[in-house]
Simulated assay, not measured.
Amino acid sequence: MMIPLNSAVLPQTVVPQILSVDPARPAQTVDTADSQSDELVPLPAKPTGDLASMVAQLRASEAGSHELNCLAVGIYFESKSEPLSGQLAVGDVIANRANSKGRFPPSYCGVLFQRGQFSFVRGHALPAVPRASRQWQTAVAIAQIVDRDLKASAAPRALFFHARRVSPGWKLTRVASIGNHIFYR
């Protein structure tokens, strides 16, 4: 049976609109896929000011992607009670490891799950976090700052850190002491 063209219902193609805060700059997006969704969420505009101002501008309860969630979880469990500069340095250690070209796994999640590296990781799952808490939202903001390389760390190129209360006897170059952590490369 033939249907007249003017009475046929044709499928419509949905074309997503890209949101941009600055027309001179293309919009940046974050893949929120946790392997099941292809949804893209626009990133907040580039924050300005000192670290505290940037954190205030980027605080959120959702990290935006599986990898950023891993980075935020690492920051949260390793340094949630540390000063912002210490949280930034912990985040940078995770990022530096992920970018180390073969020395460590090439992703934030891979770095966290590397055997024996982070004491809060048990097996193949990350612990739950209270997503409504201010400390978690700060960790998400720090993760965004680290991932987007918006602020330099006070522990440049650090790959390791430990709490002040322990003395592992590492023969590494000490690069900084921030809050209750000592950083090395």
Rank of each mutant, 00 (worst) to 15 (best):
N69T: 13
G123Q: 06
K101F: 10
P106A: 14
G74M: 08
S81H: 15
F113T: 00
A63P: 03
I94M: 03
G110T: 10
Q57M: 09
P105D: 08
N99S: 09
V111L: 05
C109G: 04
R59N: 04
T48P: 00
Q117V: 13
G86I: 03
A89S: 14
P83D: 04
V93C: 12
V55Y: 03
L71W: 06
G74T: 09
A89F: 10
N99W: 12
H66A: 15
V111E: 01
N69D: 10
C109T: 05
V90P: 01
Y76C: 03
V111P: 05
P105K: 13
Q114M: 15
A60L: 07
D50G: 07
Q117C: 13
D50L: 03
S81E: 10
N99H: 09
S107P: 08
L58K: 06
V93Q: 04
L71R: 04
Y76M: 05
V55F: 04
R115P: 01
S119D: 12
E67L: 09
E78N: 14
E67V: 06
S65P: 06
A60Q: 12
I94C: 05
F120R: 07
Y108D: 02
V55I: 13
S81F: 15
V73R: 11
I94N: 00
L68H: 11
L51A: 06
M54S: 02
Y76S: 01
G102M: 04
C109D: 02
